[in-house]
């Protein structure tokens, strides 16, 4: 893998530190009036999501992390692993629960996901920003209530639970923003 000089640091650059892949979030060049310059960076651990601060001597080099984002199609879950396919090459990849994180509950078969690969293996999976799902269970709301205030929990076909307005009923299809986990609208089939 390539190495990067601190002069190439910019936000988004993927580097290796202590055996883990990190993405640079912020890079600040600091230098006393005379003397050693430093790059003070905020980096996000791509496995844990934690952001930490690190300092490098300016001009030093750091090993790059082989991290790429690809779009993969979700196939199925075998009880332990989630299986994906590259729609171009038909290559199949499996992600474990750690890589799936909270994303599993938003995935329906054939969904296209943004998958971050580290050394060719899924490191994290982002569901589509919006998903269309059927409600399998929710309390019958008050008919005629269209205000949208309050709301009630609804369980979706994948098991995810979102708050929906009182007028939305079981069996209806809704659009959800996976980034916030919020109901967006009803969808007419």
């Amino acid at each position: 893998m390539a190495t990067y000089s601190t002069n190439e640091f910019k936000s988004g650059l993927k580097i290796m530190m202590d055996g883990d892949p990190y993405a640079i979030v912020e890079n600040e060049f600091v230098k006393p009036g005379k003397g050693q310059a430093f790059n003070r960076v905020k980096v996000r651990n791509l496995k844990s999501g934690r952001v930490i601060e690190r300092t490098f001597k300016s001009g030093d080099t750091v090993e790059g992390a082989d991290v790429v984002d690809v779009e993969l199609q979700y196939l199925y879950n075998d009880g332990e692993y989630w299986h994906f396919m590259d729609p171009q090459s038909y290559e199949q990849l499996t992600a474990d629960a750690a890589a799936m994180g909270d994303s599993a509950k938003w995935l329906k078969e054939e969904a296209l996901c943004q998958v971050t690969l580290w050394n060719g293996a899924p490191l994290s999976v982002a569901p589509p920003n919006f998903v269309i799902m059927t409600i399998i269970e929710t309390d019958p709301g008050l008919r005629g209530d269209t205000s949208g205030g309050g709301g009630k929990p609804a369980t979706l076909e994948t098991g995810a639970v979102v708050r929906v307005p009182l007028f939305v009923q079981s069996g209806e299809v809704i659009k959800v923003d996976t980034r916030t986990g919020e109901y967006v609208s009803r969808v007419k089939e």
């Binding site: 600091v30 230098k31 006393p32 003397g35 050693q36 430093f38 003070r40 930490i52 601060e53 690190r54 300092t55 490098f56 001597k57 030093d60």
Partner: peptide
């Protein structure tokens, strides 16, 4: 609580003074 940059010298104080100055004092 500073993260120590890799490759700081064991035999020269000035880079250490620069580190402390830029991060903790300036």
């Amino acid at each position: 609580g500073l993260s120590i940059p890799p490759g700081m010298p064991g035999d020269a104080v000035d880079p250490w003074l620069d580190l402390l100055l830029t991060h903790c004092i300036e």
